[in-house]
Amino acid sequence: MLEVSHIEARYGQVTALHDISLSVREGEIVVLLGVNGAGKSTTLKAISGLLHPARGEITFDGRRIDRMSPETIVRRGIAHVPEGRHVFPGLTVRENLIIGASNRRSSAAALERDIEEILEIFPELRRLYTQAAWSLSGGQQQMLVIGRGLMAKPRLLMLDEPSLGLAPVIVKKVFNTISQINAQGMTILLVEQNVNLGLKVAHRAYLLETGKIIRTDSAEALRDDKSLRNVMLGASAPAHPGSQTTRQL
């Protein structure tokens, strides 16, 4: 469904991605794992068009999307829920959800039905329906942005660190919901720092380090792999204080 091959991306002078290749098949949950700065979020940005890769190509349903604007890509069916709960703070929950459907035309009645579906998935939002989004707690905002992403009726939903800064109980709730919407047929590409959590819900995983994919496997296989822990704590390559480094920055 989604095919990323050999992309390279940079922010100004910093190369954030070197040669990333990955694929997502219909109906899967794929998780990208890695420490902070490994390039997980950048990969999602490259797919959704917020960042254009310097090299490589991205295809969705066999058509190249790596030169398209985010506005167009979301119309093709990829919704990106960025890291950090970017609600529209001044709009209400309802209005945020309506904005989520900006990528498609739909009648007012159809829109109401879609909103109703989202509220079925996130019953908590019903109570907050007319509140301004800034007044919501972190967990509620996270549900809102996922719900807003679903309002686009995407065929691929990309979630960037949905557990970020949330209390464990709420994280559990959010991840249960992720499994649930996947069970209903949604393909999901997930970025997660929390390894156990990510591997719990995903079918397959890619492991990133400094902008490269260093490993890929089924989530099951990785779950039992203790060496993964070291990678996540960044302890894979211990530096030796006092080693003869003569290289200059």
């Binding site: 917020l50 979301v74 119309r75 960025p82 970017h86 529209f88 703070p89 904005i99 989520g100 900006s102």
Partner: peptide, 24 residues
């Protein structure tokens, strides 16, 4: 109106608005 809301959303967070498919 939806258009008015889209305008507000764009003002509040243009990058996220683009991800929603709003022509910024």
């Amino acid at each position: 109106t939806r258009l008015g809301k889209q305008m507000q959303a764009t003002a509040q967070d243009p990058d996220t608005a683009r991800l929603m498919g709003i022509r910024v």
